[in-house]
Amino acid sequence: MAKIVEVSQLQKQFGKFQALKNVSFELNSGEVLGYVGPNGAGKSTTIRTLLGLIKASSGTVKIFGKDVWTDSIDIHKDLAYVPGDVYLWPNLTGGEIIDLFLKMHGAFDAEKRDELIKKFEFDPKKKARSYSKGNRQKVALIAALASKAELYIFDEPTSGLDPLMEAVFQDEVARLKAEGKAILLSSHILSEVERLCDRIAIIAAGEIVEYGSLEEMRHLTRYEFKVETRKEATDLANQAYIYDLKVDEHDPLKIAFQADSDKILMVLLELTAYDVVKIDSNPQTLEELFMHHYSQGRG
């Protein structure tokens, strides 16, 4: 896989405020990178830097091996971008705007454009002034997905779309990935990120707090246990590796708790004393991992 995006020790200051602190990540061809974090964490500042709209205070940021600030015009020939809020020319139709975007970009697939218009159930004949937020997003998505690019940057791309249209977008991202394209996806829909992304970067207060595959991250997270026993687990709450123990108010033989992933064997050994009837365990979701860092950042 070829390296498409290389960000190393990126810092950005606005006056005395440091928006980004030593941000580093990579994105390869045929890969989807999820970029998530709370509002104000630095996601948009990072993306604006990648697009060459603002200049980094220090560090290196390269796309296709080229500097994003000095070579932005060259880079944009092979880059497609969808922002989280799209503003359109009110007197042009959606179809006219899509064609304008595609001609400005350069290489595009007209058949793919027509296919996407049908898939997204989009009416290209209406004036843009009449479009809802979801339809404005569709204009940008159709134009980006029909363009022939090597890197796709999506910043909250499904904002305003209903679940069926979100599914269409997800199918298209899977197609791009299969074609060897590189995709940077910043999304507030964590289930979408979890489903689509090969690697995830979580940013909080301008710093990357987690970076890697979800499985690599989960070695730092806890497992959720739901257990039914024949004997009351009276001593379980006293174990240092058991967290957030909850006993079912209607049935004291049903309990739920969390434990670190490296303590699973100890959990199983402890549970044998209570005559287990049923046990379910699952790793934390990306949302739980994200909220863990978000609450830490706020505290």
Rank of each mutant, 00 (worst) to 15 (best):
A233S: 04
K103T: 04
T93C: 02
Q18W: 05
E224H: 14
K118F: 01
E210T: 04
D171F: 00
S186G: 11
A182P: 07
R218E: 04
A140W: 12
F101I: 05
E192S: 06
L50R: 07
K263M: 10
A204D: 10
K148I: 14
D71C: 13
K254W: 01
F101T: 11
Y274L: 08
I200D: 07
D71F: 04
N39H: 02
Y241K: 14
M104V: 14
E172M: 14
P90M: 13
R199W: 00
A174C: 08
G299A: 14
Q11C: 15
D109H: 06
L265G: 02
E215I: 01
E121F: 06
D198G: 08
K177C: 01
E150N: 15
D244I: 03
E26P: 00
T46R: 08
M291F: 12
A2N: 10
G42T: 06
K112L: 10
E96L: 06
K118V: 13
L79G: 13
K181L: 00
E216N: 08
K138C: 01
L253N: 08
V168C: 09
D244V: 11
E216L: 09
I54R: 08
A182T: 00
T229M: 04
P124C: 00
E115V: 08
P83T: 12
T45F: 01
E121H: 05
L50T: 07
A128G: 02
T45N: 05
A128E: 04
Y223D: 09
Y223T: 00
T234I: 14
N22L: 05
K119L: 15
R136Q: 11
L236H: 02
T285E: 01
H292F: 15
D280F: 04
L289Y: 01
L185R: 12
E215K: 13
V61K: 02
D99T: 07
D85T: 13
S24D: 02
C197H: 07
R199Y: 06
E192R: 11
T46A: 08
F154S: 02
F225R: 04
D74P: 04
A201D: 08
F64E: 09
L245I: 05
V82N: 03
T221K: 12
L100M: 15
H219S: 15
